[in-house]
């Protein structure tokens, strides 16, 4: 599989790529609706709609996968699996149950966490993937980030930073270990030496506080 991918990497990027629309904070609402519509159309087999979903979210999907699995090659695998899963399951996306962004990132996060856990359970992670940490020029980005993208990314990072600052240190630690490192609630409890119920409550409290913080700040 990896060998194939090496070749694919050399293929030309489709020309319609310039369509990609960064969702800047100013028109986030309209973008969210447009994205939900694209995902629904993807569910009906519309490949062009899927390509636009890809262009809007692939960077986020890949970034999240990378943050969690760390290894660039693994992250690319996870991103690919997640994006293909988006295509496969798109008909089951329900716009009335949440945003397209959340649906796609839920798939991505789960894939990434599952991968981290299975990698950890096979102790051969370094053997298999260590050498690929050296990223060659061919792995460089698909397109140069434009100014809007960069500002948007900064805005999002700042928003998350502010949200995390609103948490207690214990809550931040709980999310660091679970959301970003893939610990289960049991692993969190045992690694911190706290009761399981406390661990569950701490994760939930942290998420609720973040949610409320961002709702107020919106």
């Amino acid at each position: 599989m990896s060998a194939d991918r090496g070749e694919r990497r050399l293929r030309a990027v489709p020309a319609d790529h310039a369509d990609a629309t960064p969702d800047a904070p100013a028109d986030a609402r309209a973008d969210a609706d447009a994205l939900a519509d694209l995902l629904v159309r993807t569910g009906r087999g519309d490949q062009a709609a899927f390509e636009r979903v890809y262009d809007a979210l692939a960077g986020t999907v890949h970034g999240l996968a990378l943050r969690i699995v760390r290894d660039p090659q693994l992250a690319e695998d996870v991103a690919q699996e997640a994006l293909v899963e988006v295509w496969r399951a798109a008909a089951r996306y329900r716009p009335d149950h949440g945003s397209a962004r959340a649906w796609v990132l839920t798939i991505t996060h789960r894939r990434a966490v599952d991968r981290v856990r299975s990698e950890q359970s096979h102790a051969d992670r370094l053997m298999n993937h260590g050498p690929r940490h050296a990223v060659g020029a061919a792995d460089q980005v698909e397109k140069p980030e434009d100014v809007v993208d960069a500002m948007d990314a900064q805005w999002r990072a700042a928003r998350v930073r502010k949200g995390l600052e609103a948490l207690t240190p214990l809550q931040r630690e709980a999310l660091e270990l679970t959301y970003y490192k893939g610990y289960t609630n049991r692993q969190l409890a045992e690694s911190l030496g706290i009761p399981l119920g406390t661990a569950k409550a701490r994760i939930r409290d942290a998420m609720i506080r973040l949610r409320d913080h961002w709702e107020v700040a919106r």
Partner: peptide, 12 residues
């Protein structure tokens, strides 16, 4: 989504 990092060339 705060973690966005450009997708690798070829992924698309």
């Amino acid at each position: 989504e705060a973690e966005a990092a450009p997708a690798p060339a070829g992924l698309r």
